[in-house]
């Protein structure tokens, strides 16, 4: 159970990577942009991959009537997400430490994982809602209006995950280092659960 506790602590601590590295990354390439424009989505705000990428994305988006990319203070998520992550890290470390001291059951590890998963899915849902709004809530006086074959306005929503072609842009949306560290951390808490369960079962059968 000592080993499981340590793995639980390490797994939780990996979430701290989100404060240093982007959670997600969206890259926009086009014939005119051989060096693609890109945005890194951190839990506390959106930054350009290169210094002037956001300004240039906004500059291009004004043609199709998209709103500018939000500043941290324009979205509540960017102040709440860091608190949630810090809370989950503290909770995970405490559970891991108590597990190490064999004060709590391995089931708490699974509990943490499930809570984190629910929060993660809610976060993704929220992020996707923003993408929908960003890509389809367009200025009615936009310079260029593109419609789908059925006459409805085209949405410029970037994919939540994966690749999509939007007009002349190739859009790729994938997790970034912070996101991968979070996934590895969450996976480690599952490992901690599995290991803790194995040891505990062994102890009870003896």
């Amino acid at each position: 159970m000592k080993k499981a506790g340590i793995i639980m602590i390490i797994g939780s601590l990996l979430l701290l990577g989100l404060f240093k590295f982007p959670l997600w990354n969206i890259v926009l390439g086009a014939p005119q942009y051989p060096d693609p424009l890109g945005m890194n989505i951190f839990i506390n705000g959106i930054q350009g991959v290169e210094e002037f990428d956001l300004q240039n994305i906004d500059g291009l988006n004004h043609y199709i009537g998209m709103k500018t990319i939000p500043k941290p203070e324009e979205m509540w998520e960017f102040s709440v997400f860091p608190k949630v992550i810090i809370g989950m890290v503290i909770l995970g470390v405490v559970i891991g430490f108590l597990g190490f001291l064999e004060k709590v059951s391995y089931k708490f590890f699974l509990g943490w994982f499930l809570l984190m998963s629910i929060l993660g899915v809610l976060g993704m849902y929220d992020f996707n809602n923003w993408l929908i709004d960003y890509g389809s809530n367009l200025d009615p006086n936009a310079i260029i209006k593109v419609t789908n074959p059925d006459g409805t306005p085209m949405s410029y929503k970037p994919p939540l995950i994966g690749y999509q072609k939007l007009l002349n842009f190739d859009v790729d949306s994938w997790p970034h280092i912070g996101g991968y560290l979070m996934f590895v951390g969450m996976a480690l808490t599952l490992v901690a659960f599995w290991l803790g369960r194995k040891i505990t079962l062994k102890q009870t059968t003896q």
Binding site: F52, Q55, G59
Partner: peptide
Amino acid sequence: HITNLEQDF
């Protein structure tokens, strides 16, 4: 006196 505001290559 004209300033080009672009910051794009």
